[in-house]
Design a protein around this nucleic acid. Structure first.
Lengths: 205, 205
DNA sequence: ATCTGCCGAACGAATGTTCGTTTTGTCGTG
DNA sequence: CACGACAAAACGAACATTCGTTCGGCAGAT
């Protein structure tokens, strides 16, 4: 039973600017005054909406997971081929992470340990999102020996680390996702039945 | 000309504990008192050795780059085959990053932007280290179309992100490095000359 | 009339940093 | 070998700010 909201409630703007500040400067890097000041609120007013600063982070985190999860799931469901599904998921992940959403960026930027009192909940939220990628990977036809867990961790690591070096204007998130997945696909796709289509190195097939 | 050092100089211990604190709680996550308190120093004494907290971080960072760089270079030079060189480099990188050195972990854990006044120097130090991997990758025989820059960023991303999920006792750094590199090697090694040794999928060759 | 949503002003604690003073190792000199 | 000058290294105590947080009160939407 959600309590009634007043139309002049500034919680949405509060969350928006919290997300922006958290992604720009991290959790410990910005003060309560930085966050509320951007929307001309006073520091004490935060505590009407949240019991403390960490709870605000949890709210932003949760919204971040919700948004990036929705984006990835939607992109995924537009494809049927397993490898194309993976590529679509990665592209959506990167787009949210690098360009679209402050909320999504916070999920990757802020370490759970930075907010000790909320760490457990943050980790749970991350895991919830990771499960999405586990699902995509489960449907991939792979060589028998491939460890899907290691594959997931490696791929997500490569994707998430882009946040540290990506600069808008160069390679687009879409293109990066394509490059990453292509690379893995070449390595992991089971060999085609003998005699068929074994072109793997030449310019044209 | 390094000025003369006294035998009771505690700068080494100061750096050691700073590295430990920075890696455990991040730059903004620990106070000057946390750092010096661990070696029974007083907060003001820090400022005999460094002009400010950020300069201390730079010193730790530099030492971290030096150590992990030395470890990787040594491991690299023990191999001659390009792919084995890469694997050795990755293994050394992961060992330093996950188990051995507080200093090395700080280089990955702490974001340059967390210390605005020192960010430029921190980035330069990171780049200096990255150049090592550029060198290893340059000697790799790859398919003609492969973008070595993207490859480096992807690999380093996967490696560095391990810091967020790795727990000692499971897969060893060595094993992880092996898995990562194997995966890429299968994808990127140029196809062997036609008719020779084209086993790529079966159990035994 | 009620109660949501925020103001305004404060709180104590913690922050990075400064500075005059004191201790202690090092070294040239007698 | 002893001693005294000198600088290195750290102390001790403060500094001004900034931090997250608390709380009584009040305007205005419902």
């Amino acid at each position: 039973m959600p309590r009634p909201l007043r139309s002049d409630n500034r919680l949405p703007q509060l969350l928006d600017h919290a997300a922006r500040q958290f992604r720009e400067k991290g959790f410990q890097g910005c003060s309560v005054r930085d966050i509320v000041g951007a929307i001309r609120m006073l520091p004490g007013s935060l505590y009407y909406h949240f019991p403390n600063k960490e709870a605000l982070l949890v709210a932003v985190y949760a919204e971040g997971v919700r948004r990036i999860g929705a984006a990835v799931e939607a992109a995924m469901n537009r494809q049927s081929d397993p490898w194309l599904r993976l590529e679509a998921a990665c592209a959506a992940h990167l787009e949210a992470l690098l360009e679209d959403s402050d909320y999504a960026q916070v999920v990757i930027r802020v370490r759970p340990e930075d907010a000790p009192g909320a760490a457990a909940r943050l980790v749970a939220l991350r895991d919830e999102y990771d499960a999405l990628f586990s699902r995509v990977l489960r449907t991939l036809p792979l060589r028998s020996r491939t460890d899907r867990r290691v594959l997931r961790l490696m791929l997500l690591g490569a994707l998430n680390w882009t946040q540290t070096w990506y600069r808008p204007g160069r390679a687009s998130p879409r293109r990066l996702a394509r490059q990453f997945v292509r690379l893995l696909a070449d390595a992991l796709r089971p060999a085609p039945p003998a005699g068929k289509n074994r072109c793997r190195s030449g310019r044209k097939c």
